[in-house]
């Protein structure tokens, strides 16, 4: 097997007395859908924030696609190819759907103040390309007809999709989704599942936090389980499901 796309080892993160991540290590291979589950407060979102640069880990190693990302700023992380969505949707509420996706391309574009003021040919071309790609991405996630609506006015499901489009606009190699199906009805969830498979088939690796166990089992290639800030299991979905430590973590008792 080739080297993994993302590899972390011995990651620790403490908040005051709380040891939110305790010696967590995992590796994600290119092209897979990797799931992260665990009871509430297990440290999933903290790990997400570490992986996307919003939190600086206290110790550990963090390699991604040949870059050392340990304690790097978010914009460095995003530039290296990791993009994310948020558990409680964080769109730019008073910008249109299209503009949200255009902002997502910030890190892959270069025009500065001079370009903005004088609109020389390169800046003009870049702006046109940004707009074009934003339209394509809205089309890709299936909300093209809402491009001119303010993000705040989209339906809940469309907001989730817009967040994914905005993340894809950064041209990520790894897309990290924090509970994308939360609050969705079964048909919306099914649509989302299809979208994630499409994204993966187009060559983007996916890291997924989700509570919907059924969704996870049907979608993920591998799953890691966190509990009290530690990784207690990792493997294919059917292995993880039968792991006694996982059952204990979820049910509070060891199976007979």
């Amino acid at each position: 097997m080739s080297t993994p796309l993302l590899e972390i080892q011995g990651i620790h993160k403490r908040f005051g007395g709380l040891h939110a991540l305790n010696d967590v290590g995992l590796s994600i291979n290119a092209g897979e859908i990797y799931g992260l589950i665990g009871p509430n407060g297990a440290g999933k979102t903290t790990l997400f924030n570490v992986l996307t640069g919003l939190y600086q880990p206290d110790e550990g190693r963090f390699h991604f696609d040949g870059h050392d990302l340990f304690r790097k700023k978010p914009f460095v992380v995003v530039r290296s190819g990791i993009a994310r969505t948020f558990q409680n949707i964080r769109l730019f509420a008073n910008m249109t759907a299209l503009e949200n996706v255009m902002v997502g391309q910030h890190v892959r574009t270069r025009s500065g103040v001079i370009g903005a003021i004088f609109r020389h040919p390169r800046a003009r071309a870049e702006e046109a390309a940004i707009k074009q790609r934003a339209r394509e991405l809205l089309e890709y996630v299936g909300i093209a007809r809402r491009h001119d609506d303010l993000a705040r006015n989209l339906s809940y499901g469309d907001q989730r999709r817009l967040e994914i489009a905005r993340a894809l606009a950064t041209r990520p190699k790894l897309l990290a989704l924090d509970e994308p199906a939360a609050g969705m009805n079964p048909s919306e969830t099914e649509g989302l599942k299809k979208l994630m498979q499409k994204i993966r088939d187009d060559g983007v690796t996916i890291l997924l936090i989700e509570h919907d166990v059924k969704l996870m089992m049907g979608l993920c290639d591998r799953i890691a389980v966190l509990d009290y800030g530690k990784k207690i299991a990792e493997g294919r979905p059917e292995q993880v499901k039968c792991d006694p430590r996982v059952i204990e973590a979820y049910l509070g008792v060891a199976p007979e």
Partner: peptide, 19 residues
Amino acid sequence: RAWVALREDEIAANAMGIN
């Protein structure tokens, strides 16, 4: 756009790779 994104949600702007 980066300025407006910053105004709307600093954390999201940060996570989108805006310096």
